[in-house]
Design a protein around this nucleic acid. Structure first.
Length: 582
RNA sequence: GCGGCCGUGGUCUAGCCUGGCCUAGGACUCGGGCCUCCCGAGCCCGCAACCCGGGUUCAAAUCCCGGCGGCCGCACCA
């Protein structure tokens, strides 16, 4: 983009339409608005629901994944464990003279400090002083550096000082509730858990309308599997799907040219580490196609080491081409390993492992060390209980080795010899083992999906806007229009309207203005089918159906509408099959 | 957060430079009515705006300052 803006870009056209027709608009306009917050209107809400339904159809139901809805606010400890507190912050310094704020690590890096990101506040302070760094704007001195956390913080309870944060992703809710979810999955791996809900990020400077929000809806999908059995049995469903990948090997060569490979090839060539990740990426591609984004307007770009989130060992972003911003991320696919469960286990002290039975119970030889209480009492007298305690805590293998090789062992200040214990080897059968499941996470930004669906649906035909939303995403499915507002046509049209309503369709009735104007309005909000009631309807009970995209019409008996329309919206029938052409 | 540009009904805009003639004009949309019509037709009526706050002035949409918001660039986007 350069020079003068010659005309409105699609973002402008789409947001204007969205505002005017009630898909979404900037929130809080009467108070001047606050950037990073939007309000969904009547059409937007329904569209969002339909996108979620589609997500469920593709990602959740076939895999029998579990869906939950957990709190948005969680206590500080959760985010200590998750690593967000540590990583979701930036060191800032404020100029004492002019009050401007700067990223402290960036100032240091400009001054030649390597890895300034890793420094603590004291070290940053020291470096700033050592290098006599002054305000780049006014030359003033800096105050003490402090952290700016990009999580929203609050206190839990009115007089409490218990710090809580708004979750920056819905994923943590899933990890935190893992124990029960594992129970509900009947302790069988692999299984997926999904959470669709609001997340909060206090972005420094959000712009780009629904693309970057401070409060947004995220779809987090945590798929748990056994790292020793990472194969995806559903892979055959997608292995021939072609993905446009920009793996790190290619990126590091400085290329922006994606390689086109099938899912199978991507795995064989090592572009994608895990089968489940490849599987979800393929579903993600199909999902976006269903929302109207052709495959060649999508790509997957691998995040480089330093671009990845702290919990990720491999990550691909699914990007979609937008008119205004070029490639925009719509989903992230990360291999989170056992990072989250492992950390929550450590911080909470609760066992979050899964258990698997071996095919054959294994026989293992186990060392058993029994104290010889008599001998210990005899030699240590009053201190015997302490000795027993130390003995029970000691590492058995080390104990046995020491006694075996040196004849004695030191436990703290006590020296014990062979006679103080009875060491034996016992054969035990072990049925299985505990392990921390690994996680593949596909994660979608729902607001971006809504926007992108609208952008790809936006077309102009004969100077009129036609919103070609996929028929199962369109918020209004059918419009019922009397040709004239007299001669009993409105009454008949209302009957048709009520019929379709009772059959569960999203219907709208409109008798205002000329028929052409009404068709145009329907096109603009993407209603796939407009039904017109005319004089002939009164004679033979037939109506005309008008196709949004071609403006072609067919005539059909009212009686058959419910079943025909049902099939049409299920994509089992095409428009031409809905009646006789006019 | 920084810099540049900008902020008039639901939308697009006239007016701002050069303060008063602004009771803020138009078009579209929207609501009501007429017309009765298969692709934004026509006619009548109506709803509806100077981003917020302060200042200058006899007088501010117009000039000045601050805030908020938008766009673009920088930074940020874990």
């Amino acid at each position: 983009m350069g020079g003068v803006m010659e005309s409105k870009d699609k973002y402008e056209l789409v947001s204007e339409l969205a505002r005017r027709r009630g898909f979404f608009w900037p929130a809080l306009e009467i108070y001047g608005g606050v950037s990073g917050f939007i309000c969904y209107g009547p059409l937007g809400v329904i569209m969002k629901e339909k996108i979620i339904k589609k997500f469920r159809d593709i990602f959740i139901r076939p895999l029998r994944a579990l869906e939950i809805d957990s709190p948005v606010i969680m206590p500080e400890k959760v985010f200590e464990a998750s690593g967000h507190l540590e990583h979701f912050k930036e060191p800032m310094v404020e100029c004492l003279k002019c009050g401007r704020k700067f990223r402290a690590d960036h100032l240091l890096e400009e001054a030649g400090v390597l890895d300034a990101e890793k420094l603590g506040l004291d070290e940053i302070m020291a470096e700033l002083e050592a290098r006599a760094i002054r305000c780049p704007e006014c030359g003033g001195e800096f105050g003490k550096p402090s952290y700016f956390t990009t999580m929203f913080s609050t206190t839990i309870g009115p007089y409490s000082d218990a710090v809580g944060y708004g979750r920056p992703e819905a994923a943590q809710g899933i990890f935190v509730e893992f124990k029960r979810l594992y129970e509900q999955a009947r302790k069988k791996l692999p299984f997926g858990v999904v959470q669709i809900g609001r997340a909060l990020r206090n972005e420094i400077s959000p712009r780009q309308g629904p693309i970057r929000l401070r409060e947004f809806t995220i779809i987090d999908y945590e798929f748990f599997f056994d790292p020793e059995d990472p194969s995806c049995p559903r892979l055959p469903e997608v292995e021939d799907e072609v993905l446009r990948l920009l793996p790190k090997e290619v990126r590091l060569k400085g290329s922006e040219e994606p390689v086109e490979v099938t899912v199978r090839e991507a795995l064989d060539k090592g572009y994608i580490m895990m089968e489940w990740m490849a599987y979800f990426m393929a579903l993600a591609k199909r999902f976006l196609e269903e929302l109207g984004v052709p495959g060649d307007k999508q790509r997957f770009i691998e995040k480089l080491e330093w671009e990845r989130a702290h919990y990720s060992v491999q990550g691909y972003d699914q990007e979609v081409w937008t008119d205004r911003w070029g490639w925009v991320e719509v989903s992230g696919h990360n291999y989170r390993t056992d990072y989250d469960l492992g950390r929550h286990m450590k911080w909470s002290g609760v066992d979050l492992t899964a258990f698997k039975e071996f095919k054959e119970p294994k026989k293992v030889m186990e060392l058993v060390v029994k104290p010889n209480v008599e001998a210990i009492k005899e030699d240590f007298g009053e201190e015997a209980p302490e000795v027993l305690k130390a003995l029970s805590k000691a590492d058995k293998a080390e104990l046995a080795r020491s006694v075996e090789e040196e004849g004695s062992v030191k436990l703290g200040s006590y020296e014990l010899s062979r006679k103080h214990m009875i060491i034996s080897k016992v054969e035990r059968t072990v049925k299985g083992k505990h392990f921390v499941p690994h996680v593949i996470e596909p994660s979608f930004g729902l607001d971006r999906l809504v926007y992108i669906t609208l952008e790809y649906a936006y077309t102009v035909k004969d100077g009129r806007v036609v919103l070609r939303l996929p028929r199962d995403i369109a918020p209004v499915q059918v419009a019922v229009l009397p040709l004239l507002s007299r001669d009993g046509l409105p009454e008949k049209a209302r009957e048709v309207y009520e019929l379709l309503l009772s059959e569960g369709f999203d219907v709208e009735y409109d008798e205002s203005g000329s028929i052409g104007r009404r068709y145009a309005r329907c096109d603009e909000i993407g209603i796939p089918i407009a039904i017109t009631v005319d004089h002939r309807t009164l004679e033979d009970g037939t109506v005309t159906l008008r196709d949004r995209d071609t403006w072609k019409q067919v005539r059909t008996p009212i009686k058959e509408l419910p079943s025909l329309l049902y099939a049409f919206f299920k994509k089992r029938l095409e428009f031409d099959q809905l009646g006789k052409p006019l």
